[in-house]
Write a protein that binds this DNA or RNA. Structure first.
Ligand SMILES: [Zn+2]
Ligand SMILES: [Zn+2]
Ligand SMILES: [Zn+2]
Ligand SMILES: [Zn+2]
Lengths: 165, 165
DNA sequence: TGACAAATTGTTATATTATAACCTACTATG
DNA sequence: CATAGTAGGTTATAATATAACAATTTGTCA
């Protein structure tokens, strides 16, 4: 059992290191982490759980950025392309990537109780998918792996009403 | 290499057997495969590729059914709950389930060229996911596994423009 | 520097996907 | 038939996402 996003931790540290890591990466890659883009990245990380485009947009507006949807969708597209964010298709929400240095598609555990998303990088899952695809002569471009359930921390808590995530 | 949805086949047979199978299942389960529900199921199967809610709605309208969104969304919810359809979250589209007798979540290969969806039932993938979840003390409720790429048949065809599926 | 191309952002409008709320009609059962 | 439960009709609106084009900023190099 390892430390995860589900366990308590100093999240301001996660945020600031994600940002500075992103800044370095963008410099290395010769792409621009503009103010809107950085702000969106920061808002995603700060939320500590998957967050939707329009909620991010509301955050931008509060700080004087433009309030039209394309603003945030463009930033999200850039950040996802750079591997700094992942989109969770099942809930139309975005999470920060924990390891953006090596671009990849993530595997996610989504807790339907606390709404945290834990990114995995399981070689077993990757391999199993590769094998299945090979059996069908199928060439993989990308994949979506989203596992919904209850995290350890929530299982340990006294039971309460469940949302319908 | 096995026979798949990607290979040519008599699809009218797929449709009719899916429908009669669904009818039997619903009787067994004491639930009602009403005309709208059956028609939606048929439209999904007939399309021979994942199909969206509003396209289905257009199909219903042509045949004199009600034309408001709740009509089709209710039918889709019923059919998904009964395991007769699966929703592909990555593209907001629906496909018929090939084995609705034993309810399950599917694993899908989605070809971005011919837009066919092949449902898998890989024990390797299921096991790999189970192992990853167990490592984190995570209790799985459901999952979304969608693998996007190019199918064997399309790889064999002369290369042409690719959509951005 | 100043001209230009490329990238980014602003702005307006609209497309696409999905649900809420409330009412009516049908169905099964005693 | 009464009546409770299920399903469908209808209207409105919420939530998510993109198209199209104009304005601005940035990088490049003559
Ligand atoms: Zn990641
Ligand atoms: Zn949890
Ligand atoms: Zn299935
Ligand atoms: Zn194909």
């Amino acid at each position: 059992m390892q430390a995860t996003v589900f366990s308590p931790h100093d999240h301001t540290h996660c945020v600031s290191s994600a940002i500075s890591n992103a800044q370095n990466l963008c410099v290395e890659r010769g792409v621009r982490l503009t103010p809107v883009r950085q702000r969106v990245l920061e808002l995603v990380w700060r939320s500590h759980q998957p967050i939707g485009a329009y909620e991010l947009l509301a955050g931008l507006v509060k700080e004087g950025f433009n309030s039209a949807p394309p603003t945030v969708y463009r930033a999200l597209e850039f950040l996802c392309t750079q591997g700094l964010l992942h989109k969770l298709e099942g809930i139309n929400a975005y999470v920060g990537c924990c390891n953006p240095d090596t671009p990849h598609q993530g595997h996610f555990l989504l807790c339907k109780d606390c709404h945290q998303a834990q990114e995995l990088d399981s070689q077993y899952i990757s391999l199993a998918i590769k094998l299945s695809a090979d059996q069908h002569g199928f060439e993989i471009k990308r994949h979506t792996i989203e596992i919904v359930g209850i995290c350890q921390a929530c299982l340990d808590k006294p039971k309460k009403l469940e949302s319908k995530l």
